[in-house]
Design a protein around this nucleic acid. Structure first.
Lengths: 335, 335
DNA sequence: ATTAGCACTCTGAGCCGCCGAGTGCTAAGA
DNA sequence: TCTTAGCACTCGGCGGCTCAGAGTGCTAAT
C-alpha cells in the first residue's frame, strides 16, 4: 500500500492498476492493486477524475505521503554544485543574496520561489542620520549593524534650526546605538523623549520626527519572487484561466507574504492545497523553511509548486538553502 | 479608405466587408469595400489569416493608422479623476511615486506598464556617508539633492583608522557637494585624488573606496513592471505557450529596460511589433514617453500591450502621465 | 466608380463511432 | 483469507464527417 501511494506521487499522472503492476518493485497483479486502490479511495487518499481513468492522490494522500512514506533523498551532484557556487560567490549585501537565492531556488526546482526578509527587528541600530534636503524636508537613514539600510523621507517644520537637528541626531545616536530595533519604540518613549525636550525647544517637531523614525524601524517585509513563469510549464496550469489568479496573487507582495508561515516555526514546513488557507492556492503546495541569524529566525524561504510536486527533492533543497543562508548571515553578522 | 483602417483598429477582430458596410459612418456596399480591402491588402496594410476570413491590420497598417489616421481623444472623466487623485496623493518619495504610477497605469489601460528611472545622473550630490560596520567593512551612502538614496557595501583594508575615514569623507563632502553625478568620476580623478593623498597615507585604499563610490553614482536603472497579468486577459495571449516567453521577458529587469527607447527622444513613442527589435514582442506594441526634471529627461514610462491596442487612448494617457510626473518631480527637485 | 448577384472556399461546431485504458465483480486457486 | 484471472462494462479522447456561416473574387449591370 505504501508503495502504491509513493508510485502515484512519482509518476504524477492518473495511474491505473495495470500500469502500476508492471512496475519492478511491485509483484502483485493488477486485480489486487485494484482492490487496494478501491480501499484507499474509500479512505480518502485517492481521487478518481472519472470512472474509467486512473487515480490521482488527493490532498490527504499527499499529506500522508509527506508525513509517513516519503524517504530522504540526497541532493544530486549538479544541484549541489550550483548551490555551493551560489553561496560562495556572494559577499556583502544581504539584500542581494536574498534576491539571487530566490532566483537560484526557482531555477533548481523549476517551481516558483518566494523569499522573505530578513526582517530587521533583531538587528541593532548602528547609526541614525538625518540629511536635510530643503527647508522642511529631510531624509532619515537608519543603518543596522549588519549593514541594512532603511530610508524614509520626513517632514520637519520649517523653523527647525540645523543646530537643533544636529543635537537631536547626536542624542539619538548616543542613546540608541546598539539597541535592537524591536526595542526602538519603547526605548524612545521612556528615556529619550524627556531628554530631547531639554535639547530642543521644539518638542512637538521632535516627536513627530521620532514617530517617522520608528516607522522606519518597523520596515516593510521585503519579498522576492523568482521564476514566476516556471509554473506555466506545469501541465496543471496550461490553462490561462487557471494561472491568471495565481500570477495575480504573486504580483502582490502583501499577499505573497501571507503564503509563508510566520517565521517562528523551525524546520521545513509543507502546506498542501487548502492547507495554505488561500483558495487560489488550492492546487498548489508551498514548501517553506526559515533562516536565522545567530539562531534567531529572521526570514523565510519557500517554493510554490503544484500539489503534484517532487516533495522529497524540494524539501531537501530547502533544508540545504535555509542552513546555508543562516550560516552566511550569521557569519556576516558576527564579522 | 481611412475610415476602413480606423474601423479595423476599433473592432480589433478579423473584419469582413459585410460587417463593415453595416456601420453607420460607411455608406458603401460590401462589394465596394471588398475592392478597397483587396487593394489595401496588396499594399501591405492588411493581412488575411485565411481565405474566407476577414482581414486584420498588418504591422504596417497599424503604423499607418497611428501616423496618419488616428484622431486625438480626450481622457474620459473617470480616468482623469483617477490620475488626478493619484498624483495629488503622492508626496515625498520618488521611488514610491514611480512604483505606484506603474500600477495605476496598468490598471487604467489594462495592459502592462513599465516605468524606468529616474536615473540620477543629473542629480547633485548632497551628502556622502561612510558608516563602518566592522573592521574592513562599511556601508557607503550617497544622498542626492532630490532625496534619492543609494547604498553600497564597501571593503576597506583593516588598517584604516577611523580618523582617516572621517577625514576622507569630510574632504569628499567638501569637494563633491553640489556636483552632479555625471561629473562624479571626472571630478574625482582631477581634483580630489591628489588632495586625498595628502589627507591619508593609505592612498590605495582611498582610491579603491572612491571607485566603489563612483559605481554607486552610476547606480543601476530602476525598473518597475505593473499589471503583468493584464496581458493574460488579451485574447491573443490566451495560449500559455504564447505568453510564457513574454512573461519570462518581463521577469528580467535588464531585458525590460531594453524595451523602452533611450530617454533622449521627447514626446510619445510608439513601437509596433518588430519595431521593438525584440522577437518576443513581435505581436506587441510598446507606447512610451519620457519624463523630465526641470526639463532634463531622466526616465521613461511605457505601456506594453498587443499590437491591437487602443492607441489613441494609451497615447493620450501617457502624455498626461509623463507631464504629471515631470511636474511632480520638478516641483520636488526645486522645493 | 459602385453595386448586386453568384459560385466558391474555408473554419469551426457538432455529431458519430471506435479504441483503449481502466474499473468492478465474480469465481477459482494458494 | 488473500490473491489472481477472466469478463463485461464505462468513459474520455480522437479521427472523421457533415454542415452552416461568414467571407471572398469575379462578372455584369447601373
Amino acid at each position: 500500500m505504501s508503495a502504491i501511494v509513493e508510485d502515484y506521487v512519482r509518476s504524477a499522472e492518473p495511474v491505473g492498476s495495470r500500469t502500476l503492476s508492471k512496475h519492478d518493485e511491485i509483484h502483485l497483479s493488477a486485480a489486487t492493486i485494484r482492490n487496494e486502490m478501491s480501499d484507499l479511495e474509500e479512505m480518502g487518499y485517492l481521487d478518481q477524475p472519472h470512472t474509467s481513468a486512473g487515480r490521482i492522490p488527493s490532498q490527504k494522500g499527499y499529506r500522508f505521503y509527506v508525513d509517513n512514506l516519503m524517504g530522504r533523498v540526497e541532493i544530486d551532484n549538479q544541484t549541489l554544485s550550483v548551490l555551493r557556487e551560489h553561496f560562495q560567490r556572494q559577499r556583502g549585501e544581504m539584500e542581494r543574496l536574498i534576491h539571487e537565492t530566490a532566483l537560484v531556488l526557482s531555477e533548481l526546482t523549476q517551481y516558483t520561489s518566494i523569499v522573505m526578509g530578513p526582517h530587521v527587528y533583531q538587528e541593532k541600530i548602528r547609526q541614525i542620520q538625518l540629511i536635510p534636503l530643503r527647508p522642511g524636508a529631510a531624509v532619515a537613514i537608519l543603518v543596522t549593524d549588519t549593514g541594512q539600510v532603511e530610508t524614509r523621507h520626513v517632514q520637519l517644520s520649517e523653523g527647525v534650526s540645523s543646530d537643533d537637528v544636529v543635537r537631536m541626531v547626536n542624542l539619538l545616536n548616543d542613546k540608541l546605538a546598539g539597541v535592537p530595533l524591536y526595542r526602538f519604540r519603547s526605548q524612545l518613549s521612556h528615556e529619550i523623549a524627556e531628554e530631547l525636550a531639554r535639547v530642543t525647544e521644539r518638542y512637538d517637531d521632535a516627536m513627530a520626527f521620532l514617530d517617522e523614525l520608528a516607522r522606519l524601524a518597523e520596515a516593510r517585509e521585503r519579498v522576492f519572487v523568482g521564476g514566476t513563469t516556471n509554473i506555466l510549464a506545469q501541465p496543471e496550469f496550461r490553462n490561462v484561466d487557471k494561472v491568471r489568479p495565481l500570477l495575480a496573487l504573486l504580483e502582490r507582495p502583501d499577499r505573497v507574504s501571507q503564503m509563508l508561515p510566520a517565521a517562528q516555526t523551525p524546520g521545513v514546513q509543507v502546506r498542501i492545497g487548502m492547507e495554505n488557507g488561500i483558495p487560489t492556492l488550492q492546487d498548489c503546495t508551498v514548501v517553506s523553511a526559515t533562516y536565522t541569524i545567530q539562531g534567531v529566525p529572521v526570514g523565510s524561504i519557500g517554493v510554490l509548486g503544484p500539489t503534484r510536486m517532487n516533495y522529497a527533492r524540494v524539501i531537501r533543497i530547502l533544508e540545504y538553502v535555509s542552513h546555508a543562508l543562516s550560516d552566511w548571515m550569521t557569519k556576516q553578522a558576527s564579522g
